[in-house]
Amino acid sequence: MTTATTVTTTFDADRRWHLHERVALRPEPFGALAYHYGNRRLTFLRSPDLVDLVERLADEPSARAAFTAAGIDDRRWPSFEKALTSLAAGDFIVPEESS
């Protein structure tokens, strides 16, 4: 099997992230569906809070700042970090270039 050129990124909450330019979000009753036109992957954002967080990522200097901006309780951060880690692994969200 070829794995194409997908770069698996480790999630770092201190960096600024944004949705991959080829990812589309579609609102659904449970949250949203995300589709990546590049790697053809489909994933579920399983809560409206997660959708809100993902949409805020680009506007905040770090993922942590986006957690705060989205009003997400500290105790829920680990589960959201896990969700973002999985989105980063699928290349749905990408870190801002550090250059």
Binding site: R26, P27, E28, P29, F30, L33
Partner: peptide, 8 residues
């Protein structure tokens, strides 16, 4: 939730 249908 999927069983209850989606917008599309």
């Amino acid at each position: 939730q999927l069983a209850q249908g989606l917008n599309s």
